[in-house]
Design a protein around this nucleic acid. Sequence first.
DNA 1: TATTGTTATACTCTATAACTATA
DNA 2: TATAGTTATAGAGTATAACAATA
Lengths: 148, 148
Amino acid sequence: MTKTAKPANFNLPERETIIGYKLRRAQLLVFQDFLHTFARMKLRPAEFSVLAMIARTPGLKQTEIAEALGIKRANFVPMIHALEERALVERRPSRQDRRANALHLTAEGTKFVTKIRRRHDRLESDLTEKLGGPTNRDLLLSLLRKLA
Amino acid sequence: MTKTAKPANFNLPERETIIGYKLRRAQLLVFQDFLHTFARMKLRPAEFSVLAMIARTPGLKQTEIAEALGIKRANFVPMIHALEERALVERRPSRQDRRANALHLTAEGTKFVTKIRRRHDRLESDLTEKLGGPTNRDLLLSLLRKLA
DNA sequence: TATTGTTATACTCTATAACTATA
DNA sequence: TATAGTTATAGAGTATAACAATA
């Protein structure tokens, strides 16, 4: 096992994509888990994030939420419309800016968020268990943060 | 800071999706990196994986490759067709099973794979550097494996 | 002039059903 | 009967351009 000094290069994979490929597969599995768990509530990951964000900070504009979540504002329109039709979200005209809509949860939306948070917390703790405990989860999150 | 014993439950996030969300964002960034790097060569992540797999194990059937990579065989058809039109891949009728196509690289395809591997290795080592070195990369991969 | 929400549109990815020719 | 490759098609997700109302 001679370890000849390499010119500032790491051990490289011979053949396959490694990091990107494994990252994608893991992400797909976690999302499939999410989709299965929330299928009955007709909730997609992006919708969960939107509802959670409105719950945390009511009154934000559509553009603010869309941008924070990496959603194009054009694509955000039908999504927020669907949530409004389900009576979970309300679009109130902003007083400071009459172009904008301030987003709020309805009473039903607030109850719904409580419910999906409970279920999501269970999903997270299942994943944490899979990872080998909260220390490993935090380790994973810190590594993922380095990629951003 | 009283740490009352919790009933076999972990520290849970109060509001947002954490693992799934961060996993997705990291994966998107890595893929954007890939797409940017390989834009000039007109190569998508899935095509890279397919070429790498044919290079490693020539003669595999379409279904075998598609299944191993999580691609529906129906969607695999136009993809392999495009690679064949670019004269990178050859579909040879299998002798053992006249229904099947044995996939092989052309001479040009072999040269192409050598080129994209070099570029991909650089991408991987950039990511490894971002992660803080090969130890951290291996740590990330082992954590991702636990999720599968 | 720039921004907010909106519509229309297109492109990629993914998923299913059904066909043909072989096995 | 079942399988390999194929076709057609439909649904998500994502991207850009352009418009009206307002800033």
